[in-house]
């Protein structure tokens, strides 16, 4: 099943790449707001664009982060029952969830493409402040983000399906440990014993 592994490596790689690229937007948000604060309090010249720019950065950042979170199994789920199931039982649940999820995301994708297209059609702009920036770029982020999360969830679906059907495959993610705890602070996390005890949710 080498093609499965190649596909999973490629798909995980795509989400990883997106996550790493957009993670810089956090620094951009800090920068934009610091400029606003400095120009308002020290130069007495509030900017017109900082609030809306930081909001748009926020919106784009968080939307696009969804696929990265999914790739790192970071979407919070309740494991009280699910976690107690045997491996194939969990895989069965995942197949149900990610297949119905894919349908829902496909609907979402279609709606969001229309939403963005309509904004492009009238070259929509924001009317909150005098700055009046165009809104179609930020609205275009929605279908892109939904498309990316749909792609990643297809990879999750395939993983669950193969596990359920007892088809053997090499999961490139198998040896990754997802933890909320800073690895720098906790070198011991790298030995398997502790890792098993670490909650993997966020």
């Amino acid at each position: 099943m080498a093609w499965v592994t190649r596909y999973l490596v490629a798909q995980d790689g795509l989400s990883e790449y997106v996550g790493r690229a957009i993670s810089w937007l956090t620094v951009a948000m800090i920068g934009v707001l610091m400029i606003e604060i400095v120009s308002r309090y020290f130069l007495d010249a509030p900017t017109l664009w900082a609030h809306e720019t930081s909001t748009m950065l926020y919106g784009a950042f968080c939307m696009l982060a969804g696929c990265y979170t999914l790739r790192h199994r970071g979407h919070v789920r309740s494991e009280v029952i699910w976690g107690a199931l045997p491996e194939r039982g969990r895989a069965f649940c995942d197949v149900l969830i990610f297949s119905s999820g894919a349908v829902v995301l496909a609907i979402f994708l279609k709606l969001s493409i229309t939403f963005a297209a309509e904004s492009w059609a009238v070259l929509e702009y924001s009317n909150k402040s005098m700055w009046q920036p165009p809104l179609y770029p930020i609205k275009t982020v929605i279908p892109i983000a939904v498309g990316l999360i749909l792609l990643q969830s297809l990879a999750e679906l395939l993983r669950a399906l193969l596990t359920l059907l007892k088809i053997d495959y090499d999961d490139p993610r198998e040896n990754e440990i997802e933890s909320d705890i800073d690895p720098e602070l906790l070198p011991s996390i790298l030995d398997g014993d502790t890792a098993a005890a670490v909650d993997t949710k966020r």
């Binding site: 996550g19 790493r20 957009i22 993670s23 810089w24 956090t26 620094v27 950042f61 968080c62 939307m63 982060a65 969804g66 696929c67 990265y68 979170t69 999914l70 790192h72 970071g74 979407h75 919070v76 999360i149 909320d180 800073d182 690895p183 720098e184 966020r202």
Partner: peptide, 16 residues
């Protein structure tokens, strides 16, 4: 580490 952890957490929060 900080940027990626923030990304992971916000991806979860936003979609919820």
């Amino acid at each position: 580490y900080v940027m990626l952890s923030t990304t992971k957490l916000m991806g979860m929060l936003m979609w919820i």
